[in-house]
Nucleic acid binder design. Structure first.
Lengths: 201, 201
DNA sequence: TTGACAAAATGATCAATGTTCAGTAAATAA
DNA sequence: TTATTTACTGAACATTGATCATTTTGTCAA
């Protein structure tokens, strides 16, 4: 039955084309630029066809959200080479921030309200959880190296993530626009130093 | 000219009624629940009337965003009584987080993307900037008390804000749902301790 | 190759949305 | 009372996400 396999490949390819078109529309013109009709026009199919491959628009946006997490995770993979755990964590954090600032729309989508992304299921949590686990692993390495105390492993990871996410969010949404450009980099550096400072006791 | 004054009051009252209706619809059913028609029905006017008092829907949502910041600022005013600067900062942070978690929709709206809220003008930055200045003032007090070193005043304020905002965001959007309920409070406590720890050197 | 069946794609259509605007009603002024 | 300005109406428009009867395309047995 080579035919049914080819059909499966075709269907997967069609899904990819739809997602690619949606992603392009999204990053160039934001959420409002993604309409079922604009996607259809881009892939040169009729609007109704999209519903043969995706349940609805939310479904599509959710997939784009997942793609965002996957891209972020791919970035983080490059960190494995860094031996020093504290530096790995620091560089990872900068990667995280750089990703958010270079892909503001995608990053926003990744943390868009649950409402937009539809009801939460076990699958929905998978991607963020995976991202956090990678993060936590690096923190754990710092812990093992005696940089943090054991009781603070998860706490530290979350606090760090929160700081990074908060910075990214505030920057993307222009809430730190009042800061002089020059001091921004310094702020980021110091924020990292602040969060990553070796703890006493 | 008592008439024109009365008319001004009437117009202001009408604006309030519209905003109140919009806020009610928003907190109960989210952004999608706020339609020009639903607002109109709630205040018992025709949809077109709303456009005599507001430019468009974005305008209305922007005002709700401002109301959110005002509520938050009102909360923070109660902090003045706390003498110890470090404790004032800590309690203020908890207020901030509590506000965000008790008013998740409003908090989300306050930090919604610039796109949703319309083009940024000097007015738009006023509210968040004001909120941050109050925050920074508390940090400065810690600084004056020798708790932080001078070079870190603004940096510390921003890092703190980012951590708070990040925590609020992640919590609201369910990204920390995998955490056991019991450990959540501990995480918050430790995150605060982590960020507010007295710095050496 | 042909004809019957299944799968894929279409596009007209629906209800709902934000917004506009000619027309109507009410309030004010003359 | 009459004229004029102001406030309001609600039908209408363009767009949106989504649906579904219809048509086109693909598959396979005869």
């Amino acid at each position: 039955m080579g035919i049914s396999e080819r059909k499966k490949r075709d269907a997967a390819k069609m899904r990819s084309r739809i997602l690619e078109a949606a992603m392009q529309l999204f990053v160039t013109g934001g959420y409002d630029n993604v309409t079922m009709r604009s996607i259809a026009a881009k892939i040169e199919y009729s609007p109704g066809t999209i519903y043969l491959y995706f349940q609805n628009k939310n479904d599509i946006m959710l997939q784009l959200c997942y793609q965002g997490f996957e891209r972020l995770l791919a970035h983080q993979d490059a960190l494995e080479k860094i031996a020093d755990p504290l530096e790995r964590l620091s560089v990872g954090g900068r990667y995280y921030l750089a990703f958010a600032l270079e892909n503001p729309e995608i990053y926003e989508l990744m943390f868009a309200s649950t409402e937009v992304l539809g009801d939460s299921g076990p699958d929905e949590e998978a991607a963020p959880l995976k991202a956090f686990r990678g993060f936590a692993k690096n923190v754990k390495a710092c812990l093992d190296a005696g940089i943090f105390s054991p009781a603070e492993a998860e706490t530290t990871a979350i606090a760090l993530w929160a700081t990074l996410h908060g910075l990214a969010s505030l920057l993307i949404k222009g809430r730190l626009r009042f800061l002089p450009e020059e001091s921004l980099n310094k702020v980021i550096d110091q924020a990292f130093a602040f969060s990553l400072r070796k703890r006493g006791e």
